[in-house]
Computed example of a mutant assay.
Amino acid sequence: MTRVLVADDQLLIRAGLVGLLRAAPGVEVVGEAGDGAEAVALAADTRPDVILMDIRMPGMSGIVATREILATAPEPAPRILMLTTFDLDEYVYGALRAGASGFLLKDSSPERLLAAVAAVSGGDALFAPSVTRRLVEAFAQRGGGANDSAQPPADLAALTTREVEVLRLIAGGLSNADIADRLYISEATVKTHLNRTMAKLDLDSRAQAVVVAYETGLVTPGTGRG
């Protein structure tokens, strides 16, 4: 049973999401929040597996709420799926940096919503890596070019050569299966390298790993390549 918390300040949208989730097999709605502060409190009380979090809410925004929830939640921390109206909403990049597992458009179909909840709950990437790359490229604000030397950027010095290689390919838009084929390793090994990378860099999601790859100069916005 996947326990879900819904946070959206628009009552009709929140009610629609809750109704859809309650009708789905294997899903339990454990709470509804009308703003970010209420979402933080309910997340602590109910310990959901997944949180549907509106990005724009009065008072505490969904981004701030996401950051607070992930900073204080005991393991396993909830997976947070941001809700937005536009696929290139200026707040999406901030949400990824805060640790959100992905985002979902509010006009998505019911099937897409339920599939997203299932994917996030299972620890998978919510959206295609190409979408992650497009978002990061649109909003990453940094100077300089890609790091073309044999040495990783200083911020990534804790990573092994293979971990850096996997991170670069993830940021370039490749799926785990694509990376496994490219490096002649198994998908399980790719996941192991990614999990170790996230642990070393204190990251909460694959999306955050992509952000770090861009911000450190490991890859170049606009190309997705290092």
Score class of each variant (00 low, 15 high):
29 V>D: 03
32 E>Y: 14
16 G>A: 07
104 L>E: 07
115 A>K: 15
86 F>I: 05
14 R>G: 00
209 A>C: 05
205 S>L: 04
149 S>N: 12
19 G>M: 06
109 S>M: 05
123 G>L: 10
151 Q>V: 13
199 A>I: 00
43 A>Q: 09
20 L>F: 10
107 D>F: 02
135 L>P: 04
10 Q>A: 13
155 D>N: 09
131 V>Q: 12
211 V>K: 01
86 F>K: 07
186 S>P: 00
1 M>P: 15
27 V>M: 11
201 L>W: 11
139 F>E: 10
166 V>K: 00
67 R>E: 15
97 R>D: 09
69 I>H: 09
86 F>G: 00
219 V>Q: 04
163 E>Y: 06
87 D>F: 04
189 T>S: 14
21 L>R: 02
222 G>S: 07
187 E>M: 10
199 A>K: 14
39 A>S: 08
8 D>G: 09
21 L>N: 03
183 L>K: 06
11 L>Y: 13
220 T>F: 11
52 L>Y: 09
135 L>Y: 10
174 L>W: 02
189 T>D: 08
40 V>A: 06
1 M>H: 13
173 G>M: 02
143 G>I: 07
173 G>P: 00
77 A>K: 13
169 L>N: 01
64 V>P: 08
98 A>R: 01
159 L>N: 05
4 V>A: 01
193 H>W: 02
79 R>L: 09
19 G>L: 11
96 L>R: 06
43 A>T: 11
76 P>F: 06
213 A>Y: 05
95 A>M: 06
46 T>C: 13
140 A>Y: 12
156 L>I: 02
35 D>I: 05
191 K>Q: 15
183 L>F: 04
200 K>G: 06
174 L>F: 15
58 P>R: 09
94 G>Y: 00
114 L>E: 05
146 A>M: 06
124 D>A: 15
15 A>H: 09
122 G>E: 10
217 G>W: 04
220 T>K: 15
111 E>G: 15
75 E>I: 13
58 P>D: 12
9 D>Y: 13
196 R>H: 12
67 R>G: 01
119 A>E: 14
4 V>N: 07
